[in-house]
């Protein structure tokens, strides 16, 4: 198999995940896009591991070991990330990352959350 097939697919999946991270507004959709990016990296690792195990007589299989580690770290990441999102949702009533700008320094100042709170409740009620 040509090595370009998995490499190109991996690059395209990574860029799809990149678009999702940048363009999505719900925090859980952002986490899904992060999962896509991690999977793109996993595909790259597996493809290059299979290639190197034949070409360079590599018996270390670092690509597959790193893929397993990446999968485990991604599972831990999704657990922690969802716990954080749920904690934020309990405190704020929203998981919209565009509204979570407490640490932002902008023209609206640190009290920018006060006009947002009724809007969040309104969106929640319509949801």
């Amino acid at each position: 198999m040509h090595l370009a097939y998995p490499a190109v697919l991996s690059a395209l999946l990574f860029c799809v995940g990149l678009y999702g991270v940048l363009a999505r507004r719900n925090a859980i959709l952002v986490l899904m896009s992060v999962e896509l990016m991690l999977n793109a990296v996993n595909l790259n690792l597996v493809a290059f591991d299979v290639w190197l195990s034949r070409t360079a007589r590599d018996t270390l299989h670092s690509g597959q070991a790193l893929t397993l580690f990446t999968i485990a770290v991604a599972a831990a990441e999704i657990g922690i990330g969802l716990a954080i999102v749920l904690a934020v949702y309990r405190n704020r009533g929203t998981s919209d990352i565009d509204r979570l700008r407490d640490t932002a320094e902008g023209p609206d100042g640190p009290d920018g959350e006060h006009p947002d709170t009724p809007a969040a409740e309104k969106a929640e009620a319509t949801a």
Binding site: A11, Y19, L22, R24, N26, L29, I97, D98
Partner: peptide, 18 residues
């Protein structure tokens, strides 16, 4: 409102990176 307002910038970045 699933997509934020900067989706066109995100699309440009993703297409350039791809």
């Amino acid at each position: 409102d699933a997509d934020s307002g900067n989706r066109w910038a995100a699309l440009a970045v993703a297409v350039a990176a791809a």
